[in-house]
């Protein structure tokens, strides 16, 4: 294997990590508040509001049902507006974030739903405001589950980033397509796939290790 291929794979890996982690971080910045909003506005929630719940829920569902490749192409004008270009790693981050926000919001919502209703009732009975319930009760109690969700979200975003290789995105996905598919270099393709598997594995294991470390319910 030539040095140049190795170098290519190395820079591809870094690009992939960059796209995935930056997109995930931005998606969580927007996804957590959105998920909290959907959760608290639900019927029986601490700030029940049917209008807000229906609107947020519908927007999330619409964005989530568009296939990622279609979404990526559809928002090209928006991508150009934000980063000034439509190719390369930076340009991939925009559609990744757009696709990941509703996904993350749903993950967050389902984690929050795991918090026992009685605990929230107790917090209310002690005179907590809705904001205090969110910050001091619901989010901290859901932390382990949120972390599990984030490892799933990161793996999914990693998969999306590889898909973006088809339309001019960077990273390992682009290498797999450009070298492995268009130039029939099967070994290069296999190597990129192997690298993607390793990255997912590392994220997953790190996540699980962290959950075990922070979840007070499992420390006996």
């Amino acid at each position: 294997m030539s040095n140049s291929v190795l170098q290519l794979l190395w820079s591809g890996t870094l690009e992939t990590l960059y796209m995935t982690l930056v997109s995930s971080a931005i998606a969580y910045v927007f996804g957590i508040p959105l998920g909290v909003l959907v959760y608290v506005s639900d019927s029986g929630g601490i700030c029940q509001n049917r209008v807000i719940h229906t609107i947020t829920g519908t927007v999330i569902n619409i964005v989530r049902s568009v296939p990622f490749l279609i979404l990526l192409v559809a928002i090209l004008p928006f991508t150009r507006l934000v980063v000034g270009t439509t190719i390369g790693s930076a340009a991939t981050i925009v559609p990744l974030v757009v696709a990941a926000i509703p996904f993350v919001a749903r993950m967050v919502e389902s984690s929050l739903k795991e918090v026992h209703a009685g605990v929230i009732e107790a917090a209310k009975a002690m005179g907590s405001s809705p904001l205090q319930i969110v910050y001091k009760v619901i989010l901290p109690e859901a932390k382990p589950s949120l972390l599990v969700g984030s490892t799933i979200a990161v793996s999914t975003i990693l998969g999306y980033s590889a898909m973006a290789g088809f339309v001019g995105g960077g990273g390992l996905g682009a290498i797999a397509i450009n070298y492995g598919y268009y130039r029939y270099q099967s070994e290069t393709m296999l190597l990129t796939v192997a690298l993607l598997v390793i990255i997912v594995q590392v994220f997953q294991e790190t996540g699980i290790w962290l959950v075990r470390k922070i979840d007070k319910r499992e420390q006996n």
């Binding site: 026992h116 002690m126 901290p140 109690e141 382990p144």
Partner: peptide, 18 residues
């Protein structure tokens, strides 16, 4: 007012992460 009225429950309802 709720701070003047304490409450305990059948399922205890403690914060598991604290």
């Amino acid at each position: 007012y709720r701070q003047k009225v304490g409450m305990i429950f059948q399922q205890f309802n403690l914060l598991a992460q604290r």
